[in-house]
Amino acid sequence: MQGIAYLMILIVLYLMAKTVYNLKQDKISFREFWLWFIIWILALVAIFTDLLKIASTLLGVGRAVDLAIYLSILLLFFFVFKLFVRVEENNKITTQLIREIAIDEADKKYNPRYKRR
């Protein structure tokens, strides 16, 4: 691998860290975060071709491209899982909100000493 590749890897890693930081600071949405993250990973894979070759030989995977596919699938599984967690969290919040509304409305109707919570 040439010197320029190492430099590019460092730049992409910096950009990835910056993307994570922006998400934590709420500067970008979750959707934007994944979009950028995938782009940086694709960039890394492109730069890493040589490294992938070495890694695939070490791991006993025939071709570098096969290893890239395996890693991508793993990564996709991880994304789906993270999305599922996020959806579950949102569902919980929605249910809590709907429950509060339903109970508050019932209170208004059946409790003569009703006070908005």
Binding site: R99, A102, E105, A106
Partner: peptide, 25 residues
């Protein structure tokens, strides 16, 4: 009866819990 209403469908478990919370109140 005490009639409660979910403005958005949340499922049977959510409805039961809403009813249970209200009954506890």
């Amino acid at each position: 009866v005490y009639a409660l209403h979910h403005p958005i469908n949340r499922g049977q478990g959510a409805s039961l819990k809403t009813g249970m919370d209200y009954a506890l109140r």
